[in-house]
Design a protein around this nucleic acid. Structure first.
Length: 226
DNA sequence: GCACCCATGCCGGTATACAA
DNA sequence: TTGTATACCGGCATGGGTGC
């Protein structure tokens, strides 16, 4: 598939709305996405088939349900990078929209890792504390490996086709946060331990009191205002 | 500027598959 | 059997490109 064809897949409001909704890393049904984008079920079905054929989404059928999700980190990164060029250019349409955007700016998931002010703060603290280094490309240091191990995350077990650690440009902060397998594992651990909770069905996260304590103890972050 | 053609997106109607 | 989710088809609206 050519660059123009990939770009063309995202050059439609409905398909873009689907991709941004799926950015929370979860699987949605075609019906849920249709309601989310404000289109009919038949239209959603048609547009989803195009996105799947183009490799941006994958589907999983369970009975009469058709669950779709982003095809992987590469698709998520592509969408995040494009979104950083047009961060809600039209501005929030109403108070509810403004509240949602504010929550997402504070803390959210970026496909499968932490983003927003929280994600950027975590990345900055990890660099300041020498847990990760940018000296020869982004990498986890030996103290960083022990830090992950203390959280019960075995980085050697995360080896695969996916990079262990990479940066991802945050479209609200315009600074990098941590992505890759290690970033995803850290986000999963934060959700498991209820340091953060999902707000509604979107990708915005709420930092819990336990989370504030954990991020302060682990990284020295002061999240009282977040 | 205007008319025409074509591609695309969308919707309504209908059929099909599946769960309850 | 019924209700729901999804797929398919035909038709309409819209916008861009092209020729006059």
């Amino acid at each position: 598939m050519s660059l123009a064809e990939i770009a063309g897949l995202l050059a439609d409001r409905t398909r873009a709305a689907f991709c941004l909704a799926l950015f929370d890393g979860r699987a949605w049904t075609a019906g849920e996405l249709a309601r989310h984008a404000g289109v009919s079920a038949s239209t959603a079905s048609e547009q989803l088939s195009r996105l799947i054929a183009g490799g941006l989404l994958t589907e999983e059928r369970q009975g009469r349900h058709r669950y779709v999700r982003l095809s992987g980190p590469a698709a998520a990164q592509l969408i995040e990078n494009l979104a950083s060029f047009a961060p809600d250019a039209a501005g929030p349409a109403n108070l509810r929209e403004s509240t949602r955007l504010g929550a997402e700016a504070r803390a959210r998931t970026c496909y499968d890792h932490l983003a927003g002010q929280l994600g950027v703060s975590v990345a900055t603290a990890a660099l300041d504390r020498g847990l990760v280094t940018e000296e020869a490309g982004l990498a986890v240091t030996e103290p960083g490996r022990r830090w992950f191990a203390d959280l019960g995350i075995d980085l050697s077990a995360l080896r695969g086709s996916r990079p262990l650690l990479r940066t991802c440009l945050d479209w609200t902060e315009r600074r990098n946060h941590l992505a890759g397998a290690a970033g995803a594992a850290l986000c999963a651990r934060a959700l498991d331990r209820r340091w953060v909770e999902r707000i509604g069905s979107g990708r915005a996260l709420r930092i819990t009191p336990e989370g504030r304590t954990a991020f302060r103890d682990l990284l020295g972050l002061d999240l009282t205002a977040a």
